[in-house]
Amino acid sequence: MRSLASIVLAFESIVLALVTPVMISVADIRPAIAVPVCLGLALLAIVSAGLLRFQAGYVLGSVVQVGAVGLGFVVSVMFVLGAFFAAFWVAAIVLGRRIEVAKKAHEAHEAPSS
């Protein structure tokens, strides 16, 4: 589960960093606002990827998803991109849990026959 979630957060951090110039040039947001917001979210995504071994990493990752969708109020395309990344985030968690359960079941099945 951790590896899938960290991949989502890594790619999302790149997209969030690239939204900074879009906010400045297209949405006409002052750099003093756009830079800390976008790069702050990108940094939060990287930090949460590093913390995924703890529950706090998943909580921070979810905060990043809310923030990414929330940027849609400033740059409308972020509603779509944020929704995609939020869907990837949920899928990474759900599929990751299924993979972990399958691994444990496989290990439990293999252990008695050794």
Results as ranks from 00 to 15, higher is better:
residue 97 R to T: 01
residue 75 V to H: 15
residue 2 R to K: 11
residue 113 S to N: 13
residue 59 V to A: 05
residue 62 S to L: 13
residue 72 G to S: 09
residue 7 I to G: 05
residue 44 L to F: 05
residue 83 A to L: 13
residue 81 L to C: 00
residue 106 H to E: 14
residue 112 P to S: 04
residue 71 L to E: 07
residue 96 G to H: 13
residue 29 I to Q: 08
residue 21 P to D: 07
residue 45 A to V: 07
residue 62 S to Y: 10
residue 75 V to E: 15
residue 15 V to M: 01
residue 60 L to T: 09
residue 94 V to G: 09
residue 26 V to M: 05
residue 81 L to G: 03
residue 24 I to A: 04
residue 105 A to R: 14
residue 90 V to D: 10
residue 36 P to C: 02
residue 111 A to R: 15
residue 69 V to C: 15
residue 21 P to M: 08
residue 30 R to F: 08
residue 111 A to D: 12
residue 70 G to C: 14
residue 52 L to G: 06
residue 101 V to D: 14
residue 45 A to F: 07
residue 5 A to L: 08
residue 89 W to M: 07
residue 45 A to I: 04
residue 88 F to Q: 01
residue 87 A to E: 06
residue 3 S to M: 11
residue 11 F to R: 14
residue 31 P to D: 02
residue 21 P to N: 10
residue 79 F to H: 08
residue 26 V to Y: 10
residue 43 L to N: 03
residue 88 F to S: 04
residue 15 V to N: 00
residue 24 I to V: 13
residue 1 M to H: 12
residue 37 V to F: 12
residue 44 L to G: 03
residue 106 H to K: 15
residue 85 F to M: 05
residue 114 S to G: 15
residue 101 V to W: 15
residue 11 F to K: 11
residue 58 Y to I: 02
residue 104 K to W: 13
residue 44 L to V: 07
residue 103 K to R: 12
residue 64 V to M: 03
residue 79 F to I: 10
residue 74 V to A: 08
residue 109 H to S: 15
residue 65 Q to P: 04
residue 100 E to V: 06
residue 48 S to M: 03
residue 12 E to K: 05
residue 32 A to L: 13
residue 99 I to E: 00
residue 50 G to I: 06
residue 9 L to H: 02
residue 58 Y to L: 10
residue 75 V to S: 12
residue 98 R to A: 12
residue 12 E to H: 09
residue 21 P to Q: 07
residue 33 I to G: 00
residue 38 C to L: 02
residue 57 G to F: 05
residue 16 L to H: 07
residue 51 L to T: 00
residue 102 A to L: 11
residue 36 P to Y: 02
residue 19 V to P: 02
residue 44 L to S: 07
residue 53 R to W: 06
residue 76 S to Y: 12
residue 53 R to F: 02
residue 41 L to K: 09
residue 64 V to H: 00
residue 63 V to E: 03
residue 41 L to D: 05
residue 55 Q to H: 08
residue 57 G to L: 01
residue 37 V to S: 04
residue 28 D to M: 09
residue 100 E to W: 03
residue 74 V to P: 00
residue 69 V to H: 14
residue 24 I to W: 07
residue 9 L to D: 01
residue 28 D to P: 00
residue 109 H to G: 13
